[in-house]
């Protein structure tokens, strides 16, 4: 028992600060508005799409053979018909990640003309506006490589389109596919700060499998078990008496 008590006391010194951070951030998650924390305040819920004129579509097999001729070093895994700003495109996948936010490689081809399309600043801004329901104006628009502060798990190059609304909304567009990675704003950033603290993710890698939390979780586990054993010991010795 002496060892248990000694361990409990000294472990308390080591884990104290982090334990309060965990309880405090835990309380925050318990009380926070989880809708706001998603950062989708200004996200358009239903994107209107123009009808595709099927008769004007080029055949995917033609697109495939053209692409194989022009860039034989890039394999094509799939060809998906998508729509970006009222214009149909074939989205060619060259490297398929297990999930969309994992590293992927795409090309965009105009589905009516067969022209290759690269998402430039103007197109990124137009795409961002089409998903944005707020009243802000477009601010800085940048093409950025991961890691991305607002979406630390995202592994693809994105366009970040900032809006000057009250929440400082940023819209993220996958630079190779035009996929809307997501919206972020100050509500989400505020909640993300607590997640960072709770997960001890001080390198903001978007993960809770880092060495510092593994170390502290083991120390805390020992801390809690020694405390629990101490409590049991007090119970057995009859030290819980109601006077």
């Amino acid at each position: 028992m002496k060892l248990v008590k000694c361990l409990h006391k000294w472990l308390s010194v080591l884990v104290a600060i982090q334990l309060f951070i965990w309880l405090g951030s835990g309380l925050f998650f318990n009380l926070m508005d989880s809708t706001k924390a998603k950062g989708n305040e200004n996200l358009v819920s239903n994107l209107a799409v123009k009808k595709i004129d099927h008769k004007r579509l080029l055949e995917p097999s033609y697109i495939l053979s053209q692409f194989n001729k022009e860039q034989p070093q890039k394999p094509v895994n799939s060809i998906k018909l998508i729509q970006l700003i009222d214009q149909p495109y074939y989205l060619l996948n060259h490297y398929l990640g297990l999930y969309q936010h994992f590293y992927n490689e795409h090309s965009l081809v105009n589905a009516y003309t067969g022209e290759m399309k690269t998402i430039d600043k103007i197109m990124a801004q137009t795409l961002a506006i089409s998903t944005y329901s707020g009243r802000g104006n477009i601010g800085v628009t940048e093409r950025i490589s991961p890691p991305i502060d607002d979406f630390p798990k995202e592994k693809n190059i994105v366009w970040r389109v900032n809006f000057d609304d009250e929440l400082y909304t940023s819209v993220y567009i996958d630079a190779s596919s035009g996929r809307v990675v997501g919206h972020s704003n100050d509500d989400k950033r505020f909640a993300d700060f607590f997640f960072m603290l709770h997960f001890m993710d001080y390198g903001t890698l978007g993960s809770f499998n880092n060495w510092q939390i593994i170390l502290f979780s083991i120390l805390t586990l020992m801390f809690c078990i020694t405390g629990f054993v101490w409590t049991l010991d007090l119970l057995i010795k009859g030290r819980y008496k109601i006077r």
């Binding site: 997960f199 499998n209 979780s217 801390f223």
Partner: peptide, 13 residues
């Protein structure tokens, strides 16, 4: 506290 630390440790490890 024991439950939090056991489950927390499992999830991070």
């Amino acid at each position: 506290f024991v439950v939090w630390s056991v489950s927390g440790a499992f999830m991070v490890i």
